[in-house]
Write a protein that binds this DNA or RNA. Structure first.
Length: 422
DNA sequence: TCTGGGGTCCTAGGACCC
DNA sequence: TCTGGGGTCCTAGGACCC
């Protein structure tokens, strides 16, 4: 059996931990640039707000409904996520972190000593008590069914946070009631295709024959079909090494002057390189892209991007930045009001062992590694970005993102600890 | 005026090999 | 008249996830 532990309205729940007066009040958390709603509480949903709504289109609803709005603070949410992970791993041996707010637990063997529903309910209560974050748990023979269970547990108070699907009868009942669009692995397009065949519930899909599914859909749908029937076949184990690292942003304002995209691309490259070194890895390929706004009706959309391999995989900020800026020069077109840029590092390999090459144009790689270690050490000790390349700019340029309603880094910055007045 | 960011997996088709 | 068979690797684009 698998359990899926899912945090309820996770980003909003974290904000409520630090603003306890917001219980029962509608809360939304926004994407970068305060652009769209990315998380919202049931109270906010009840007002008609949806995940993905651009804030400027729903300002009236937000104002009239007394919705409390926050700029996203991913550092804070990630710190809280790590705490929840730690609690889970303390109680359960096999825990897979699936996303920032979800973990799969493999409960094989635990049913010998525990009633699984009671066992998971105790853990859910512990998480709530230690962190203040409410969670919902689904328990079932497959991960897809466990995810379904967690949504039932969230929806119906009677489950007291845990929904167990452990019999054929419960499985069929759940499949009949659950919205097909909400099944894990069924997106917009697959839903449309399934409905065209008259498949309207997960139960309809599960009852089709294997030949029927295989001849009409590709492998991911076949897997979902098997999982709905109770046969586990989705492996979510984290890969040993990520395949790519991206840093991209929409700009706070449109920028046309090349110096602004240069600052942004250098900034993003440095961020990617930091993530790369934190994972003790090297990148073999650098890609850069720039684009104007896809929503501006009067401008033709322009998106430019290009990719370059590195001679030897590296995590050196200077070398990566030089390559990224070379690519930018190549793809930049003057006169375009750019709204977004990004850097992607790929072909990622472990830092050791490294296959060297005979005619390496970069000399003194070991000295450069030491330099990066010193820079990382200074930034770790004295604060992010204390030492950076001059080409990244001073942090005042118009491309920087807006975040007007940001909660401080309560959990990760000693200078921003929560103050309580008594 | 104002519309997010970071990923993975699968497939079809092209290029190439013997 | 009839023009093979069996592979691999790479890439772009699509679909999905949170």
């Amino acid at each position: 059996m698998f359990a899926l532990v899912d945090c309820n309205s996770f980003f909003c729940a974290v904000e409520r931990v630090f603003h306890p007066g917001l219980r029962g009040i509608p809360v939304c958390v926004l994407s970068n640039n305060d652009g769209c709603i990315v998380a919202l509480t049931p109270e906010a949903k009840a007002l008609g707000l949806k995940r993905g709504d651009p804030l400027f289109k729903v300002r009236d609803v937000v104002a009239q409904g007394g919705v409390r709005v926050f700029s996203g603070n991913l550092m804070l949410y990630a710190a809280m996520s790590r705490r929840i992970n730690r609690i889970l791993r303390h109680h359960i041996h096999y825990v897979e972190t699936y996303s920032i707010d979800e973990c799969f637990c493999n409960l094989q063997g635990y049913d010998q000593f525990h009633n699984l529903a009671d066992f998971m309910r105790t853990i859910a209560n512990t998480i709530d008590r230690y962190t203040g974050i409410p969670v919902s748990v689904g328990i079932a023979p497959t991960k897809t069914l466990a995810k379904m269970g967690s949504k039932f547990a969230k929806q119906y108070k009677g489950y007291r946070a845990v929904c167990l699907i452990d019999t054929e009868e419960k499985r069929r009942k759940a499949l009949g009631l659950f919205p097909l669009a909400d099944v894990w692995g069924i997106g917009r397009n697959t839903l449309r295709d399934l409905q065209a065949y008259g498949v309207n519930t997960p139960l309809d899909l599960a009852e089709k024959s294997e030949t029927w599914v295989r001849s009409r859909f590709s492998l991911p749908v076949v897997r979902t079909w098997m999982e709905l029937r109770g046969i586990p076949c989705i492996d979510t184990a984290e890969p040993l090494m990520a395949g790519s690292i991206t840093t991209s942003r929409s700009f706070g304002q449109k920028v046309t002057d090349l110096s602004n995209p240069r600052e942004a691309v250098a900034h993003f490259t440095a961020a990617c390189a930091n993530k790369l070194r934190a994972r003790n890895a090297l990148a073999g390929t650098v890609s850069v892209f720039v684009a104007n706004s896809p929503f501006a009706p009067t401008e033709a959309w322009y998106g430019g991007g290009s990719t370059r391999p590195l001679f030897v995989p590296t995590a050196d900020t200077l070398e990566l930045t030089r390559t990224a800026l070379d690519i930018l020069t190549e793809i930049y077109r003057p006169g375009i009001p750019y709204k977004k840029a990004g850097v992607i590092l790929s072909d990622i390999v472990p830092a050791s062992p490294l296959q060297l090459r005979l005619f390496d144009p970069v000399s003194g790689r070991s000295h450069r590694r030491r330099l990066m270690q010193v820079v990382d050490g200074l930034n770790h000790r004295f604060g992010l970005k204390r030492v950076h390349l001059a080409v990244e700019g001073d942090g005042e340029s118009p491309w920087h993102v807006k975040c007007a309603h940001r909660t401080p880094d309560y959990l990760t910055d000693i200078n921003q600890l929560l103050t309580v007045n008594i």
